[in-house]
């Protein structure tokens, strides 16, 4: 078991991630968002590591609070966060209006793969089993 102390911005919980593409490595700051189906990363971050959203072959239709969006699906070589990693996984690309503080969202597509407890009161995320991969 490992306990991660997250950064708090207002009532939000922020963590750092590792994102590897063919050209570079980035450490984006992500908002833990259990209300988001997908992990979403700022377009510029993906572009900078050599995973251009402009070259995406697939798009996902996303329901947001203000309507629908079609977001590019981008393959990255490696994505890690909270001690868990995914090789050759996919993230969605988007530009956030509140991007001053974060570079993206850590969504349920990543969170549900691992045995993770999110504790907003204490500002902690508890990883119960580092090898707790259970879903594709």
């Amino acid at each position: 078991m490992r306990i991660y102390k997250v950064q708090r911005i207002g009532g939000l919980m922020i963590v750092k991630a590792y994102l590897k593409g063919p050209e570079a490595i980035a450490y984006p700051k992500l908002l833990i968002d259990t209300g988001s189906t997908y992990t979403i990363i700022a377009q510029e971050i993906l572009e900078s590591i050599g995973c251009s959203p402009a070259l995406a072959e697939e798009r996902k239709r996303i329901v947001t609070a203000s309507g629908y969006e079609m977001l590019p699906v981008v393959k990255v070589q490696r994505f890690s966060c909270l001690g868990c990693s995914v090789e050759n996984g996919h993230v969605l690309a988007h530009t956030f209006p509140f991007g001053t503080y974060v570079d993206g969202l850590l969504g349920m597509d990543f969170l549900q793969r691992f045995l993770i407890d999110i504790r907003p009161f204490s500002g902690e995320v508890i990883l119960r089993c580092e090898t707790g991969k259970k879903k594709n």
């Binding site: 911005i9 207002g10 939000l12 750092k16 050209e23 570079a24 490595i25 980035a26 450490y27 984006p28 700051k29 908002l31 968002d33 209300g35 988001s36 900078s48 947001t64 609070a65 509140f98 001053t100 503080y101 570079d103 969202l105």
Partner: peptide, 21 residues
């Protein structure tokens, strides 16, 4: 295009910051 980088916000965060996604 740095090979390994991060972006940090070092300013003050507004106390009334609210987000709805």
């Amino acid at each position: 295009r740095p090979k390994e980088y991060t972006i940090e916000y070092v300013g003050e965060v507004p106390e009334d910051l609210a987000v709805m996604l």
